[in-house]
Nucleic acid binder design. Sequence first.
DNA 1: ATTAATGCAAAGCCTTTGCACCGGA
DNA 2: TCCGGTGCAAAGGCTTTGCATTAAT
Lengths: 151, 151
Amino acid sequence: MIRNRKHSNQLEKYVLTPQRQLILELIRKSCGPIDVKKLYQLTSKKDESVSLATIYRSLTLFKKVGLIDEHRLGKQGCCYELKQSLEHQHMLCKGCGKVSDFESPLITELIKAIQDKQGFTIEKVELCLQGTCKECQDSNKSVAEKELKNE
Amino acid sequence: MIRNRKHSNQLEKYVLTPQRQLILELIRKSCGPIDVKKLYQLTSKKDESVSLATIYRSLTLFKKVGLIDEHRLGKQGCCYELKQSLEHQHMLCKGCGKVSDFESPLITELIKAIQDKQGFTIEKVELCLQGTCKECQDSNKSVAEKELKNE
DNA sequence: ATTAATGCAAAGCCTTTGCACCGGA
DNA sequence: TCCGGTGCAAAGGCTTTGCATTAAT
């Protein structure tokens, strides 16, 4: 049972249905952020009948109660992961598409600086670095792919 | 005439058509990032016949030749602005939806730290802070809107 | 005459929603 | 019984694309 406090202090109840349990478990098990497509593939393996609508609705619920974070990494589509600190952010490799995590105390510093300077209260930080990971640099894979796309 | 160097060092030529000129001018004139919808409204005022497809194709071209940056700020949809430095980033107010810019040398520091630590070469930085701007804090506008949405 | 650019409409993704049905309290 | 959760299919919003037409060199 997941509980959430409404604005008028009434408790809202949510049932941890088998579908939700499965989805949440898959998010837990995935190393790093996972997208809806992948999530749908994985749920389908365990339970053919789970619909995309249920996945989207579950994700909305999990976000609402603060179990997970939603990130927009690529051009379109979001990915999801268990709630993390503000300092936990992402890097997207243009070569292989891999998403890696990193943390840095500099982010906290940055937030503090902005808040002080601009009077803006920051609740969420979405930082995505895009570039080339070490493996792709070594293998020059990303260069090869760029050339392919150009011609 | 916009020129761009192909990978084999041939020059690619692009014509600065009236439509592209208009679109680029509107991006220039807009203070801060502008989205496609707004861009379409504005172009339509000047030239009814400019199509959405042309706007999207022009934006793709401008991105390609490095004239503009594309940012994903809200849940869906992108916005565009003249190319900026890595240190130029955005804040989105949940209350009024306003997008403001900020710059901080800490971003450069952060990039440097990550590159050194992880061996990741960073080409693009997408940082979006979400929270409440000063005006909305003062007017408690965002709180009121949240309550509306809850009930 | 050749090639790029445009407008239009259709299609493509990702996501949300309406509705009928099901199942647990 | 009641009410939330689900699956299905349809609709929505944003973006891209195929095709015929137009414009420019």
